[in-house]
Structures are given as structure tokens and as C-alpha cells.
């Protein structure tokens, strides 16, 4: 079936059901570096779609169709083998790790501890957080936490990125800079990205295609 490897994230006739009720269906190809925005009201199943792609579909839901990432069928893979990064509404930094440790945890295994720290610090530098490397995540501001969460997911070198309303809990002025940062990272690292949101401003900031449920 996999006659030619399509790069990017491919949702092939994916449908989400709650019990027997169909919540949504989606057929799309997201190219590397592209952000596809999915707009819809709460309860429309857009977060569930993110869970399905990441591999966390709750048992009360079901999903049909095929999810491919760079040509590989990942529909039945366990979450840790999918290489799909997720940014949630909340930054969810691990409270028992320092900022640097959060990044180190995300970096793929391998390399000496020294090399790993260098890599992690470089990532923190890119988001201007290197001076907070040893900080307790709980002491950071909301915007700082959001940036560290972005650096953390980037550190894990995902092949696709899923954004579940990641800007909705930020202050209005922070939201713009965070959107910009995400767009830059996605474009620079050529990551296919799916953004679900109910905020029209999110959609217009990405200059990618927009689907409305």
C-alpha cells in the first residue's frame, strides 16, 4: 500500500467516534514545515484527534483510518514510538526537574553528559532561557514556561508536532510572540504541524491552510 513515501503527516480518511457517534473526519496531508490549523468549538473532538494521532485515545473513543508519518503507518504504534510531539494548553513542565533537566529528559538517548548539556543549553539559548537552566520550573512566568515547553518538545526531535490550543492560557501580549516563535521553529526545522484552536487569531498567524469543523 505504501507505494511512494509521502513526507509529512498524512491523515488518510481518519474518523473519530465516541461510542457510535461520529465526531469528526479528516483527510489531509501536512507537508514538512507547514502548519495546518483545525478550528472548531469545544466538544467538537479536535483535542481527541490530537490524542488519537499522539497515541493516547481514551478507551471511550475509537478511531478509524490510517495515520502516516513520512510514509510509515503509525496508527497502531505505542505513543513513544511515534515521534509525535505534543504541546498542551498547559506547559506541563515536570515539577521535580530543573529547566535544564526537563530538556535533558527529552533529548534522545546517546552522547556524553557533557554533549547533552551543550545541546540542551543551545536549545535554551534559542528561546533566551539559558540563564534559567537551573531554575525551578514553578518559579518561571507563564510565558517562560511556555517557551521551555516548546524547547522541550523540539529537543525530542519529533517528526510531527501537535499543538492543542497552546496559546489559549497566555496573556494577549505574550500570545503573539509565542505564536511567532512556534512558527519560526516549525519552519526552520521543517516539522509538519497540526494546530487545533478556537481562536481565529491563531489561524491567521500561521499563514497555513485552515480547516473549520
Amino acid at each position: 500500500m505504501n507505494d511512494q513515501a509521502i513526507t509529512g503527516l498524512q491523515l488518510d480518511n481518519v474518523e473519530i467516534f465516541k461510542g457510535t457517534v461520529r465526531l469528526l473526519g479528516m483527510d489531509a496531508i501536512i507537508a514538512p514545515g507547514q502548519i495546518l490549523t483545525l478550528m472548531g468549538p469545544s466538544g467538537s473532538g479536535k483535542s481527541t484527534l490530537i490524542n488519537a494521532i499522539a497515541g493516547f485515545l481514551p478507551s471511550s473513543f475509537s478511531c478509524t483510518g490510517t495515520i502516516r508519518l513520512n510514509g510509515q503507518n503509525i496508527t497502531t504504534l505505542p505513543p513513544e514510538s511515534r515521534r509525535v510531539g505534543v504541546l498542551f494548553q498547559d506547559p506541563l513542565l515536570f515539577p521535580h526537574f530543573s529547566v535544564l533537566q526537563n530538556i535533558l529528559f527529552a533529548l534522545p538517548a546517546g552522547g556524553t553528559m557533557h554533549e547533552r548539556c551543550d545541546k540542551a543549553l543551545t536549545l535554551l539559548h534559542e528561546i533566551s532561557m539559558d540563564e534559567f537552566a537551573d531554575a525551578d520550573p514553578d518559579t518561571l512566568s507563564g510565558g517562560q514556561k511556555a517557551r521551555v515547553a516548546l524547547a522541550r518538545v523540539i529537543a525530542s526531535t519529533p517528526n510531527a508536532l501537535l499543538l492543542d490550543e497552546p496559546f489559549s492560557k497566555l496573556d494577549a501580549d505574550l500570545r503573539d510572540s509565542m505564536r511567532q516563535l512556534v512558527c519560526e521553529e516549525v519552519a526552520r526545522r521543517k516539522i509538519p504541524t497540526l494546530l487545533v484552536t478556537h481562536d481565529k487569531d491563531d489561524a491567521s498567524a500561521t499563514d497555513g491552510p485552515v480547516l473549520t469543523l
Partner: peptide
């Protein structure tokens, strides 16, 4: 416990 922490860890490539 907020199990989204576990979801984050697993999407970062860690086993259950």
C-alpha cells in the same frame, strides 16, 4: 495526578 505529564513523557519517546 495529571496524567498529561505521562502523555508528555511518552510523546517525548519514553516507555510507559
Amino acid at each position: 495526578f495529571d496524567t498529561r505529564y505521562l502523555a508528555v513523557a511518552r510523546s517525548l519517546g519514553k516507555s510507559v
